[in-house]
């Protein structure tokens, strides 16, 4: 019974959608059909009532989770001039919001789909703040196409991968290619969805087949990664996650209330995970 109830609540996940989240390049881990799939969804990105609605609603939680990670540091995080790299930025929901923060100096947002980058660039023109030179820059690239930083000056305080890795063929090598972009003491922040029978039911069966909220093929359930798996992956990486620098938190969509952080839900639904690069790396 308990399981059914949980499962029912988790049905809301079906509404969650990935208009486009992927990473693709000649050299990379990503499947080009993913890219073209999400290109088709680009138009709905900024429609608050459209299929991206739940991503919009989730956005404040991304900031809350980043704050949770930064606040957990024994040494204070930089109060100003923070630099963000948003990988798989899509239409720019997170990238725009990060660029608006007072503490932010610069946001570089990349996505291999030219369609969504065009949407993102166009949307940013609605905000004079975002049009300030250097504040928010979009590039139609994958992470492998970016020049690897040579000094901490070129690295980022926060590198984000929101709803991306579930669309990646080889998540381990993909994550590793993000590592050099994080400055020592900076964070790699990820959100994704666990591979459980509830998520299979809600995203594959209900979202794609029953309700058709999300076009068929949006999700590849086999690519979902569990929190435990990511956790052990990061534990195994030298130079990452020391002194409590590995945090995670689950969140659930409650109809009528929106997304809520819920303890333990990282085991079976949507979750965030953040890992800090050791200061001496």
């Amino acid at each position: 019974m308990a399981i059914r109830l949980r499962n029912f609540r988790n049905l809301s996940l079906l509404l969650r959608q990935h208009p486009y989240r992927t990473h693709s390049s000649s050299t990379s881990s990503v499947n080009p059909t993913e890219v073209s799939h999400f290109e088709k969804l680009a138009s709905s990105w900024w429609d608050p009532h459209g299929s991206s609605s739940l991503l919009h609603q989730m956005n404040p939680l991304r900031h809350d989770f980043i704050s949770l990670c930064l606040d957990s540091q024994p040494d204070p995080p930089p109060a100003r001039e923070r630099k963000f790299l948003d990988v798989g930025c899509g239409g720019g929901i997170f990238a725009e919001s990060a660029a608006r923060l007072k503490e932010t100096e610069r946001v570089l947002a990349v996505d291999p789909s030219s369609g969504v980058i065009a949407v993102a660039k166009e949307h940013a023109k609605r905000d004079p703040l975002l049009s300030k030179p250097g504040r928010l820059e979009y590039q139609n690239k994958s992470i492998e196409d970016l020049a690897i930083p040579r000094s901490p000056d070129e690295q980022f305080d926060i590198v984000t991968l929101f709803e991306v890795i579930e669309h990646i063929d080889q998540p381990a090598s993909f994550l590793k290619s993000c590592f050099p972009f994080v400055r020592p003491g900076g964070w790699l922040i990820i959100s994704t969805i666990a591979r459980t029978w509830t998520s299979w039911l809600t995203t594959k069966v209900v979202a794609e087949e029953v309700v058709r909220m999300v076009p068929r093929g949006t999700h590849d359930w086999d690519k979902y990664i569990n929190e435990q798996e990511l956790r052990s992956f990061f534990r195994a990486q030298e130079g990452w996650g020391r002194d409590g620098g590995l945090k995670s938190q689950g969140c659930i969509y409650v109809p009528g209330l929106g997304w809520k952080m819920v303890k333990e839900s990282e085991r079976w639904g949507n979750y965030f995970i953040g890992v800090r690069k050791d200061l001496d790396r």
Partner: peptide
């Protein structure tokens, strides 16, 4: 204040 702290556009209905 909530919107500013979460980087939302303060003129945006949902944000």
């Amino acid at each position: 204040e909530y919107a500013v702290c979460h980087g939302a556009d303060i003129g945006d209905e949902m944000g």
